[in-house]
Design a protein around this nucleic acid. Sequence first.
DNA 1: TCTAGATTGTTATGATCTATAACAGTAATG
DNA 2: CATTACTGTTATAGATCATAACAATCTAGA
Lengths: 157, 157
Amino acid sequence: MTRAAKADPHTDPDHVSDHTLRDLAGYNLRRTSQIVQADLAKTLEPLGLRMITFAALVLIVDNAGVRQTRLANALAIERSNLVLIVDDLEQRGLIQRTQVPTDRRAYALVPTDAGRDMYARALNAVHAHEAALLNNFEASEIATLISLLKRVEAPRA
Amino acid sequence: MTRAAKADPHTDPDHVSDHTLRDLAGYNLRRTSQIVQADLAKTLEPLGLRMITFAALVLIVDNAGVRQTRLANALAIERSNLVLIVDDLEQRGLIQRTQVPTDRRAYALVPTDAGRDMYARALNAVHAHEAALLNNFEASEIATLISLLKRVEAPRA
DNA sequence: TCTAGATTGTTATGATCTATAACAGTAATG
DNA sequence: CATTACTGTTATAGATCATAACAATCTAGA
């Protein structure tokens, strides 16, 4: 960095003002989400998990026997895109596709012991990540943030 | 819909519990952001604008003469990816690439009258969209949400 | 029961988005 | 003046996502 950045935006002629965008909830949501997702991806990378793969594993452990279509709905992704995610989890021995006696089309997804182990480790890593990310937040503020986010999403659920 | 959805998740054997994920700020951020962005895209589509193109136009109108590198930084995207966005805005007559007398490498991006017009229309549409999206929120709650989002993002700025 | 329609998982595919590397032209620095 | 850095650009590859189509299977109505 050869050219020093000026500290005060009011005296810096090169400063780009984005107040119009920053007054929009949608823009702040986008920017904040991008940063947090990128950060979270780095947290899960050492475990060999992507964000969506982690989420799928969590739901399979918490809902042993769930089918792929319902899992895709819960994750808000397309069935077709879930296939490779489940393939990945299965090939790594974290879950199994087991047959459903009453419906030969469907698979019941169940975690293996290794899957439950990975679940615990990944969740610890993510919790630690969130604690670091939100270290200047009160617990009540985090609760407020999550609550507000859910309320934005809720009417469309 | 041939199979009726049960109302109470506690009595619905097919319900997928996602409470573990829903306790994570990052997951709620991701889900909420996805929904809002998709919705916002629909709002801007009739104007022929994508979310990122809209954001670029706003910054160019609010910062007439800004250069592409600074604009890319402000938008948190790569310079190379901004090129096509600026191309699009220019080809539609909303902005102009004008020469910078003191630096023949750089372009100063300035809005045209049509660009300022589009800015006003698009901003109205987005404001209306946000009002509808957040119609069950108090103004103070929206302010709180935006403030919390900025604070999550801030330490990394 | 039989048949038409719906559902499940899957594959293939195209659109979009993003990051990276490399380049020519130009500016800044010592 | 020579080296280094910066600007906009192009090309490219990876990731993400939605859509369409398919075979196998189930469901529901005649």
